[in-house]
Nucleic acid binder design. Structure first.
Lengths: 329, 329
DNA sequence: ATGAAAGCGCTAACAC
DNA sequence: GTGTTAGCGCTTTCAT
């Protein structure tokens, strides 16, 4: 692959002039510009990002930290990030951490190594101390997950309000015994969604029954199955279940079916996230939709602005209750 | 962030010595090494990959081209690629093309720009002419998808044999009217799986009925629903269906349920890929499993070897029939 | 409008 | 065992 030197030689100009042409610098005569452009075509020249980046000390690469790409929740967010990134001449580097601190370190180092210009973290299990440390020197945005009272700018939804709406929807349908399948409350969103659940119950004068609240370790299908199994063993069976993730809800659905009961006739079911598969189950799943694409776009925009040195404000996006078969009697 | 110069100054040595320490070059005295290491720690120094890469003209970044990350089929492959990449000190850049030629171009240019050292393509819709062109100058591997009679090395499974096994499994269960939900036969794997389907039927003396073969445009859930709807309208209804992807099979399952029929009692169902959701449906889905993780590892190993200038051979991996509820009477 | 030259951070060839 | 220095490909003053 040719370099700028060869192009300059072929065009009979200096490398500076070639660089000016490459960067659409105005101060090049049309005639010279043409000569250079011809040489570029002739040599099939592509500028080396490496040289350019070193000189400009930027890589135009954005890091996206996520626990696992196999979680469909992230797909749409990433799409949004990518759209915004590309239209601003950035590219994204997807970093699966598997919540493994070693991997996390590799990616944090890429920022320090100037191999990436900034980072969007979506990992709930991220090492916040290290992330905060990074934030002191480099652009960092949190997307969906964030630290309460922290300093790193974030974009998210109002998790408490979303859970409140989900439970209110069930109450309006006449349910009084509403169970909650929550994830580990070490996660902020889990605490917030629980608060929303409780607020809805209290508002309608229902007691909060601790036996109706089940905590899973992870958000996997099998966790949902297990949670539902426990709930079905209760003396007083819930007539409705709110699971804080669609994958958990789908596990619960499986277990309800396996026990010979039916959704929504015997038990109504609400999930969270509107993953694509939530529309493929039988019955289809009522769920809370987050504006995932918009969230991704917003996160990318915030990060790019931050790279450009602007001051960034937190952003809370709207959610929506998607009513489908699992709550339609 | 400090640079190598400052470290050298602080340690009272030359930049060359610092570089030697960084690269574990043997010819440094323990005493000097200690001084340098102390300086590195004191200054919180991290070497700039940009400088290093420019000098070595390598980026240690591998590009992975895929149509869409929301397709769960790719998740495990990517995991495999990443595992192998990281253990060889490479990182991967996930590139979603959405089968959009413009995006493809961006990533191809990254290779030419020395921003990445090689590329693994998993995109069935990739522009083969451009990929072949790239292959003339840069390391390229195809994973899962490949060009028949092409020159680019690939790792894949024997799609024909896999389809043959799927259909044979149905025949052994006593099915005679077996339908095929195939994707567009512009894709090589679709043609190969059809051949396998036909070979199995022929081997057992069943005729090939064109009305039993449905082609979908894409591999989406809705395509499966639509395909099954058509098949259910036939005068002679199939007693078993082989869909060339789990997502299609899940769509078919939904439609079968919607029509009041049951799987596997009325219609047996086999999918392809063993995506994680195939175990979450009701009933669970019999499917063909590809060794996705291994395929990813293999692809990465092939690419890295290719970058090191080795000659690469094509590799065919084994598949497996996973028998689950959708074919268990 | 264009060229010469410095320098981004690093490695490696060569000298001592 | 360690230092000096050229140079990877590019952008950007500073001259002219």
């Amino acid at each position: 692959m040719a370099n700028i030197q060869q192009v300059a030689q072929k065009a009979g100009v200096s490398v500076a002039t070639v660089s000016r042409v490459l960067n659409n610098n105005a101060t090049v005569s049309p005639h010279t510009r043409l000569k250079v452009e011809t040489a570029i075509k002739d040599l099939n020249y592509e500028p080396s990002m490496l040289g350019r980046n070193l000189r400009n000390s930027e890589s135009r690469l954005l890091l996206v930290l996520l626990p696992s790409i196999s979680n469909p929740f992230y797909s749409e967010i990433i799409n949004g990030i990518q759209t915004t990134a590309i239209s601003n001449n950035y590219n994204i580097l997807l970093c699966e951490t598997d919540s493994n601190p070693d991997r996390e370190n590799i990616y944090f180092n890429m920022i320090k190594n100037k191999l990436a210009d900034g980072i969007i973290s979506m990992d709930p299990a991220v090492n916040m101390q290290k992330l905060n440390e990074l934030y002191e020197q480099y652009p960092v945005i949190q997307c969906s997950e964030y630290e309460e009272g922290g300093v790193i700018p974030y974009v998210t939804i109002d998790n408490e309000q979303a859970a409140y709406h989900a439970v209110k929807h069930l109450v309006k349908l006449g349910h009084e015994n509403i169970a909650l399948i929550n994830s580990d409350e070490k996660f902020l969103y889990a605490r917030q969604r629980r608060t929303g659940y409780e607020r809805a119950l209290q508002e309608f004068g229902f007691p909060i029954d601790e036996t109706f609240i089940y905590h899973t370790q992870e958000l996997k299908f099998s966790d949902g199955v297990q949670a539902m199994r426990k709930l079905l063993q209760l003396d007083r069976r819930p007539s409705a279940v709110f699971a804080v993730s669609d994958t958990l809800a789908i596990g619960a659905l499986k277990e309800i079916n396996a026990s010979g009961l039916h959704v929504p006739e015997d038990i109504a079911l609400v999930g969270f996230d509107k993953i694509s598969f939530s529309n493929m189950t039988n019955p289809t799943l009522t769920t809370i939709s987050q504006p995932m694409h918009e969230m991704g776009c917003t996160a990318a925009r915030m990060l790019i602005n931050s790279i450009h040195g602007e001051k960034i404000e937190n952003i809370i996006l709207d959610h929506e209750v998607i009513i489908r078969e699992s709550t339609m009697g």
